[in-house]
């Protein structure tokens, strides 16, 4: 091999790829990363679907029966109708959190997928946005299935516009995913996610009005719950599937909060990952 064929530019994780190669446009870059995750997922989709689609449906059945016997009505609606959007929230919370925490950390640290991708004309922003979008996509599948099951058993009180709960689920999942990705960016090892369960995931699950309305808890717990994105998502989904207290201004306010969470936490995660990967 002659000397001039040797690469003059070495692309290593320590050099920003933009310096070496033209970067893809934003939409193409994000789509490329999203598609990478989708292709990996597709190879095992039957086994994967089992956990995050069937599991929340079993929860729906269990809570509908088990807690439904204790609470006949909640927030002025039958308990089953109350719990359907709550279980959509549970499904999207677990799916999206695990995708952007354990799975993302595994891709970054064990497989070094991010480093490999950054050696191509992709930017770190594409990875962060693609990761959050992919978590949203997976969670959408899970939430839609619960909505379908809930509708079949009479848990959806409104008509077709209850379908609007699905994009809300996507948005909520992306907000959760953005928060999880920030945790990923600061975790030193995979066991650090153990802290996230008692400090983030369980409070979100319990105090977002998923299966017990928030008003039953002390005021300080309600304040904590209202800061977390899942509360806002579940509130909007519940308005859409039950038709109770459906006020358009409130819906937009909740959605604006979710979008703000996605942007703020996504940007923080991007900044932290930038410091971590290109140090």
């Amino acid at each position: 091999m002659s000397a001039e064929l040797k690469p003059t530019v070495t692309v290593s994780p320590s050099a920003r790829p933009q310096a070496a190669l033209p970067t893809l446009g934003m939409v193409r870059g994000i789509y490329a990363f999203w598609r990478r995750n989708a292709l990996v997922w597709r190879s095992n989709w039957i086994a994967a679907c089992f956990a995050f689609v069937l599991d929340p449906a079993v929860f729906l059945f269990a809570f509908g029966y088990g807690l439904g016997a204790a609470f006949t009505t909640m927030s002025g609606m039958p308990y089953f109708a109350f719990v359907v959007p709550g279980m959509m929230g549970l499904g999207l919370l677990y799916t999206s959190f695990i995708e952007c925490s354990y799975a993302a950390f595994f891709r970054m640290e064990a497989q070094r997928t991010y480093h490999a991708i950054l050696a191509t004309p992709m930017a770190l922003g594409h990875i962060v946005a693609g990761e959050i979008l992919w978590a949203g996509t997976k969670a959408t599948l899970s939430s839609s299935f619960i909505l379908l099951v809930g509708a079949c058993f009479g848990g959806v009180l409104t008509g077709w516009h209850s379908l609007l709960a699905i994009p809300v689920a996507t948005l909520t999942a992306m907000a959760v995913g953005a928060m999880a990705l920030l945790l990923t960016s600061v975790s030193r090892r995979i066991d650090d996610f153990n802290y996230a369960w008692p400090l983030l995931v369980t409070p979100m699950l319990m105090f977002s009005g998923t299966f017990i309305e928030l008003a039953r808890f002390p005021v300080w717990v309600q304040m904590v719950g209202k800061c977390l994105p899942l509360y806002h998502g579940v509130e909007v989904m519940r308005m859409l599937t039950s038709g109770h207290n459906l006020v358009l201004e409130t819906v937009w306010a909740h959605i604006a909060y979710l979008v703000a969470i996605i942007i703020v936490f996504g940007a923080l995660a991007l900044a932290r990952l930038n410091g971590r990967i290109f140090k």
Binding site: W197, P198, T202, F207, I212, R216, P218
Partner: peptide, 15 residues
């Protein structure tokens, strides 16, 4: 330790 405390709290209050 923390996770079960949260569960106890939530179910204690709620249920």
């Amino acid at each position: 330790i923390l996770n079960p405390i949260l569960f106890l709290f939530a179910f204690g209050f709620g249920l």
